[in-house]
């Protein structure tokens, strides 16, 4: 870890200005990821701008009937917020499937979007990594890649985005409100994270110095039929091998609306709208779900250690859609525990 200075921003404008005027700055809120990155010498900012004094920790209804989640509200406060639990139970379930209570108490909503991959090679500076050091190569390709991507990867990078919360946000089609040196803008969730391509060092589409100030959930919360299914190597405090956020709107047993987002399989929360469209107007049955699962994974490519994720992904999609159809309440204490 290198020496750094720390200021605590009082206003969003001040934070953005501080960032613009500093050499090698970074924002810090909960610090649950950037501190690790600094200890491992993966990130070496020389100036940290603390965000926890900003007035961004509220969760409030919007005029459009949605819900605005402040960027510095903690993951725990968000997951347990009555409006979130009642209207967006998918989001609550996804957040609680992530990390541990201690981490969720510290981690913030904005930070959750900004967390970096957990690729082993990214964290170990003794090995090559194009994301950490562009041009150095990808250690994970041809190496140990159990937690790596099967969709949308590139020859430069097969890392995955590790978030659970973001998978639910992708399914719910949230919007990301940001403020930067050029003013404020709104980014659709599907446009926020990006695929690695030839620039894997870029995780998302933020411009330098842009700061997330809020996440906005649309009115529709799919509170009747939802499921967040997370498969991992232990029941808590482990990143997803495959996770599925599934939401449905049913008319009887016919699917009126549906969304699927996958975690643990790509550089960003994975949506496949063409595959989702196969659900619309169809009966909510296992055979329908299997067709969709096939479609979602049809272009999946294994990297060796993670080949199993392709079949696991198919099965997880089917199970998640079955659970969503059934109503989404955690039916399996082993799979859906929220410790």
């Amino acid at each position: 870890m290198n020496p750094f200075t720390l200021t605590r921003a009082e206003t969003v404008e001040g934070a953005v200005r501080d960032f613009r005027d500093s050499d090698s700055p970074a924002f810090i809120a909960g610090g649950t990821n950037i501190i690790d990155l600094m200890k491992e010498n993966v990130a070496r900012p020389t100036h940290l701008i603390g965000l926890n004094k900003l007035p961004l920790n509220t969760i409030e209804p919007t005029a459009e009937g949605g819900l605005r989640l402040g960027a510095t509200a903690t993951n725990a406060d968000t997951a347990w917020h009555p409006e979130v639990q009642c209207r967006y139970p998918l989001l609550s379930q996804a957040i609680l499937a992530g990390a541990s209570p201690q981490l969720r108490n510290m981690a913030t909503n904005g930070g959750n979007l900004m967390q970096r991959t957990r690729c082993y090679y990214f964290y170990d500076t003794a090995t090559p990594c194009n994301k950490r050091e562009p041009g150095s190569g990808c250690g994970a390709i041809g190496g140990y890649n159990r937690i790596h991507a099967i969709l949308g990867a590139s020859e430069q990078c097969i890392a995955t985005h590790p978030s659970d919360m973001c998978i639910a946000l992708a399914a719910l089609e949230a919007e990301v409100h940001v403020v930067g040196p050029g003013g404020s803008r709104v980014i659709k969730f599907e446009d926020f994270h990006r695929l690695p391509g030839n620039t894997p060092e870029r995780d998302n589409t933020l411009e330098p110095g842009e700061l997330i100030v809020a996440l906005e959930l649309p009115k529709k919360g799919f509170e009747k039929h939802f499921s967040y299914l997370k498969l991992r190597d232990r029941t808590s405090y482990a990143f997803a091998l495959v996770s599925v956020a599934a939401v449905l709107e049913l008319d009887g047993s016919t699917i009126e609306d549906a969304r699927l987002a996958l975690g643990g399989v790509a550089h960003k929360p994975w949506r496949d709208k063409a595959a989702e469209a196969l659900l619309i107007g169809q009966p909510a049955t296992t055979s329908t779900f299997k067709k969709v699962a096939e479609a979602v994974l049809k272009d999946a490519v294994g990297q060796g250690t993670n080949d199993f994720k392709i079949e696991l992904g198919r099965r997880a999609i089917v199970r998640a859609l079955q659970q969503a159809t059934a109503g989404g309440k955690a039916s399996d204490v082993f799979l859906n525990s929220n410790p």
Partner: peptide, 20 residues
């Protein structure tokens, strides 16, 4: 290829949590 352990931390070297 590197002769090196890759999951050399508590996040990736898994031992049970209470829920297990």
């Amino acid at each position: 290829r590197f002769g090196r352990y890759m999951n050399h931390n508590y996040a990736e070297y898994h031992i049970p949590v209470n829920a297990d």
